[in-house]
Design a protein around this nucleic acid. Structure first.
Lengths: 278, 278
DNA sequence: AAGTCCGTTCCACATGATGAAACACCCGAC
DNA sequence: GTCGGGTGTTTCATCATGTGGAACGGACTT
């Protein structure tokens, strides 16, 4: 079989003792990661496998529901992936994908790092890395906080992921933004700078900074850091830029179409509320 | 290798010409369908594979991110599944899983069949099979209708998937339920019969009937049929029971824990709003 | 009709997958 | 400590299995 000594052996061949499975898995990997259906030839080329082998493997994978054929003939992720997606809440999955980025942020800032999504009218935290400091934000997973005094919430407001509040804006501290006009103005700024901050607005002495994360169809969630105002207040902008940089990396992982021309300002047509992932 | 003529060859062996991949796929299938982490031994037993083979295959699958090890050592769906779930909206996936059930309903009733989910405060249709009749409901995918005059909406209200309406209940026809008390009473009935109906409440001459679908953590969406009152009014209960029967089948596909003792009345503690799939 | 792609099926060959058995490990029992 | 049961991995001789070239069959152009 592997009678191709020179060029046909692209990857590290000498793995455990499983060639067929490795090759089949490589095919599945390509298909799942691709944004669009992948053609037979593309798969054959990318993996460097003989056409006959590719055909046999794909047939096996299709038989076993790991891949499936698009009406147009291209290969897409199979029913087994659909089943998994239908059975499990997507947010923990997103949190898992985000883990490396969150860890990086925790390492670079030393503060507590969050991943927040919109659920109904509120922000919920679906991922968190704890600060190494003794003085730090508590575990906020599952804790709902008023979105207008959360940096994550402001980001989600700014990008239309969370419907704008209609009722009274609760005053949590003397610095809480309670006027709808002031909030709207701040949201515009957030869309420009691509990050949001709350300093002593939720709780005196607590500062948080957050940036949006995009999936295929726009902003889907937000990442942010929070910690004592004493440690964060004079590096809000620095941390903000760091967040933008990291959220960019995460967005790429989550299928955001590669930046077209680099929009001069991040304002987008304020799409209607989005649920689900991506 | 396959020197096991008598008992070790459980399934149809003589497939195309791919044994290793088929076996590996079987392992992935077991792991993904399972509700909890699956132990090595369980996998080895269920597939009937030699322990050595199981070990090698699982190692390969783990290397390629198709499966992953739980902290406790059990196998669970790997990062590739998480990536897929994070990248794609779960509802279309649910709709795909539901397709056979929807088709069955369409065949047995002849009417238009819907799959509806809660998005924010409203019901959206994520799947539909069109009636074969000339006179039938239009394509409702993506069309939001007031939940209190939609049978799907009433079901979602009844099971706490959609937050109960707070504002005025819009009067669409003279039969629309506009009093909150009347609605509450009807929701109680729905929880008892397990199906909801709207007759001429959204539009005169239009009848719809719906039943809840459960996932792992309770009701997640609803299925229903709709058509002219002329054809449906005298078989509302019959169609209702049919929907309950079919939604039961679908719930099983979507991971609802198998019915414990068969609750005498379907009332459940009115869980808080659920988003995400399952 | 002849000419290109694209994908599947055939087939002889030898390589990679196989299972029994040996080995390493982790626990709890005693 | 050391036995014993259970669990997972590695080794290795054996050969069935997966392999790729080539032939084949369609679909679409020229």
């Amino acid at each position: 079989m592997g009678s191709a000594p020179p060029q046909t052996t692209p990857q590290a061949t000498t793995q455990g003792g499983t060639q067929a499975v490795d090759r089949a898995a490589a095919l599945v990997d390509l298909v799942v990661r691709a944004d669009d259906p992948v053609s037979f030839t593309t798969l054959s080329d990318l993996t460097g496998l003989a056409r006959s082998t590719t055909s046999r493997l794909l047939a096996a994978l299709e038989r076993t529901d790991l891949v499936e054929r698009d009406p147009s003939g291209g290969y897409v992720a199979g029913p087994l992936f659909a089943l998994h997606a239908a059975l499990h809440d997507p947010w923990p999955q997103v949190a898992r994908i985000a883990q490396p980025v969150l860890l990086e942020l925790a390492a670079r800032t030393g503060e507590t790092v969050h991943l927040g999504v919109a659920r109904g009218q509120e922000v919920v935290h679906v991922g968190q890395i704890d600060s190494t400091y003794l003085l730090s934000a508590r575990d906020w997973n599952q804790v709902d906080v008023p979105a207008h005094c959360s940096s994550l919430g402001k980001v989600l407001y700014a990008y239309g992921v969370l419907p704008l509040p209609t009722g009274r804006l609760e005053r949590r501290t003397e610095r809480t933004v309670t006027s709808r006009e002031a909030l709207a103005a701040e949201l515009a700024t957030i869309r420009r700078t691509r990050y949001a901050a709350t300093v002593d607005e939720l709780e005196t002495g607590l500062t948080a900074i957050a940036a949006p994360v995009e999936g295929r169809d726009g902003v889907i969630c937000a990442i942010g850091v929070s910690g004592p105002t004493a440690r964060l207040s004079d590096r809000v902008d620095h941390v903000g830029r760091l967040l933008v940089e990291q959220s960019d990396a995460l967005s790429a992982l989550l299928g955001r179409p590669s930046r077209h021309v680099s929009a001069p300002d991040g304002t987008r047509p304020q799409s209607t509320t989005k649920e689900g992932a991506a």
